[in-house]
Design a protein around this nucleic acid. Structure first.
Length: 163
DNA sequence: CGTCTTTGACCCGCGC
DNA sequence: GCGCGGGTCAAAGACG
């Protein structure tokens, strides 16, 4: 993995404010498809035991924004430094892909899997493996269209993509 | 050997 | 006060 050239939403303009979860709906705020125009059909699964060589997105919908969000907790993270920005960039992408492991050029380490009741599909939580990268990624499959994969990025990278 | 994956348990905020 | 939902961490194992 970590070979493709999936541009992060860091340079994306603010499309809209956060969508109310009560009326959560995937609208076509923006459509991107030139991000993965540098895809590499030979790389991807890094020769693993599973995975498929297919991961081309046809249509991508972006919807997100910056909104305050949780931070200090109690005794784990806020144990000493409870300094945390309340504004975290959050970007969600709806992509048509068979695999949810879309390489965006960063190394992600899965740190949790949860089953959401709203969807029969589990939700995967990824975190940037790079030290000093508070970026988090949430991958979930669409409930109405299992062929759609919703990738939610949270935060911005502290390091260069790689190249 | 080092890195990453996987599953379960734990924790927190909120609602009732 | 308890339960629910969601989110995160941790240990072990697997794998390259």
């Amino acid at each position: 993995m970590s070979n493709n050239n999936f541009k992060p939403p860091a340079d994306l303009p603010e499309s809209r404010e956060y969508v109310d979860q009560s009326n959560f709906e995937f609208s076509e705020y923006l459509t991107f498809d030139d991000w993965l125009d540098e895809e590499d059909p030979t790389s991807n699964a890094s020769g693993s035991t599973h995975q498929n060589p297919v991961h081309q997105a046809n249509e991508v919908s972006v919807f997100g924004g910056s909104e305050s969000h949780v931070e200090g907790s109690s005794s784990r993270e806020a144990g000493s430094g409870r300094e945390r920005r309340e504004v975290k960039e959050r970007f969600a992408f709806k992509t048509i892909s068979e695999v949810e492991i879309l390489d965006d050029g960063f190394k992600w380490r899965k740190y949790g899997k949860k089953m959401v009741k709203n969807s029969p599909n589990p939700r995967n939580y990824y975190r940037c493996s790079i030290d000093g990268c508070p970026v988090k990624k949430r991958v979930e499959r669409d409930r109405d269209d299992p062929r759609y994969v919703i990738t939610t990025y949270e935060g911005v990278h502290n390091h260069e993509s790689s190249t």
